[in-house]
Amino acid sequence: MQHSREFLLDCYQSMVTIRVFEERVHEEFATGKIPGFVHLYAGEEASAVGICSQLDERDAIASTHRGHGHCIAKGCDVHAMMKEIYGKRGGSCGGKGGSMHIADLAKGMLGANGIVGGGPPLICGAALTAKYLKTGGVAVAFVGDGGSNQGTTLESYNLANVWKLPVVFVVEDNGYAEATASAWSVAGSQLGRAAGFGMPGTLVDGFDFFAVYEAARTAIERARAGEGPSLLHIKLSRFFGHFEGDAMSYRADGEIQRYRNEHDALKIFRRKVTEAHLLDDFTLDAVEAGVVRNINEAVAGAEADQMPTEADLLTDVYVRY
């Protein structure tokens, strides 16, 4: 498929934003400024952006505990996200959610999710809304290879197919469920599971934005046309641990460096678009510089923001109680 220059620039900017955001959170976490549990998405950018760049505000996504990338790709404000990760009052959720619960329902971002496998049932509901209200919307459930083994995910495969919902299930397989290899923990195959529930399944190279884009395009079009759900099995790798502080002793020596050298989605994207003369290095460098400035500002803004106060503790539990 032919892409416009503007579209490619937007996608690159999103992917770079994810990368720089995550690298910076990694650095700042190490200084002790960021509280709690943080799971970084760096390395998996092509998946989030390859899919979400085809979605609009009618469309919903449900993310995972590793949710920053999906949030950014779906259009969440990175300044508010950074404040949220710092637990500040100006954060996306007023500091009440943190890294694992960033959401923007107005943008169709139904939330990162602290429960592995929490998202797919919710996404069936979002798809039901779209189908019932005839909005033309589709709903995308991201799970990891760990989440692919949850009953909620498998039940959702069944329900989405029984109800013929406009859903795309995306299994982002980074090779590890926490510290356990997916090669060991997933019986059968992701595509075999898709076939078992009677839906198309596609194995996708998750380092290649264009491969993700094309596979997702087919699945999204099928959903929008009312033909039911599909599954994408996206193979990729995370550049950091399961959570910040993970020593990653379960990974092979040099594994991450090899991925960074040979399978970096940003480098692959840059090579492809420059070789095809769609974009040039100068323009891409300018995008990166802009992103770095933006993330610097986001971090400065987060550091400067107020903490929530005691009065905030008791609000937002109910609409009315």
Binding site: A60, A62, L105, L110, G118, P120, P121, L122, I123, C124, G125, A126, A127, L128, T129, A130, Y132, L133, A139, G151, T152, E155, S156, N158, L159
Partner: peptide, 17 residues
């Protein structure tokens, strides 16, 4: 399939039904 359809009800509620 209670997980799926109770969750779907929750997701549908969060998106306008």
């Amino acid at each position: 399939s209670e997980s799926a359809f109770i969750g779907a009800a929750v997701g549908a509620a969060a998106t306008g039904l």
